[in-house]
Design a protein around this nucleic acid. Sequence first.
DNA 1: GCGAATTACTTCCGTTTGCAAGCTTTATAT
DNA 2: ATATAAAGCTTGCAAACGGAAGTAATTCGC
Lengths: 148, 148
Amino acid sequence: MTNQAFPAIAHLLRAHTVVEERLSGELSAVHGLSLKELLLLMFLEKAPASRLSRVELARCMHTSASTITRQAAPLEKRGLVGRDVDARDARLSYVVLTPTGQQLVEDARATFERSSSTFFRDRWTDDEIAGLSELLGRLTVSLPGSLI
Amino acid sequence: MTNQAFPAIAHLLRAHTVVEERLSGELSAVHGLSLKELLLLMFLEKAPASRLSRVELARCMHTSASTITRQAAPLEKRGLVGRDVDARDARLSYVVLTPTGQQLVEDARATFERSSSTFFRDRWTDDEIAGLSELLGRLTVSLPGSLI
DNA sequence: GCGAATTACTTCCGTTTGCAAGCTTTATAT
DNA sequence: ATATAAAGCTTGCAAACGGAAGTAATTCGC
């Protein structure tokens, strides 16, 4: 039998490039958000009390702490997130979703969902889409950062 | 029925992040190549006469022409690629794989394949891997830049 | 208790990227 | 034939990123 892992990963890389291209364009045009900014807001929305510390966010986003610092700054300026301090541990500074940010996430999620469905417009059954979702989910099942 | 497109795309984005993290690390450590550099070399390897013009490369990689110019420069300095001119059209400058580059691609592809298989080590059947590959391939079937 | 190690966060620096502008060469229209 | 448009490539500029280093606060070891 042949090793199918390589073509699967190669297709994954290519599919991501194409998906990110289209999603980024739509989100930026409609809501003025980059894809990564929306993902950050979505992680906050999913978190308890709509807030996460910066290192927790970094783990969710699989990125560095310095990137979170710089990604959150413009969102804070726009009033989409706020900054909370921890009474017990003064090192922690939470990023918290504001009502404005919550509203924007809901709107942008609709754009995300609509744009996502366009990738499957032709020649896809619901079972195939669900199957792809299940397989991709299994690929990262033990790692942090799931939005589902 | 529920809309499964969103979770499928969300899982795709996350899987890509994790895959790129591990692949980049291994390729960089073992061969001193970034993932994108290897993909560029692989597109050359697959092309007729192991060469492509810079705009053709840009289309394969889904990136801009200026990025190709800058990505090819260090590879040329390392002797992995060369530069050809077109006798008919002086605007074209081809990027061509050298024997040294060809050898490095073969070595790095082995690393790529070995690393790819680690993502499926546990709880994956050959049919499931092939199924994932087929579904991801169909997602971008009409677009340029396939390595398969 | 108290110094040392660890953690959280920010800032600095080098790298990578896309877009816009520019240059050169080729194609097109009249 | 010539002016205009288009294509291919490169460079300048600004934005985004990771890692290293720095600062402040907490925890650990004894």
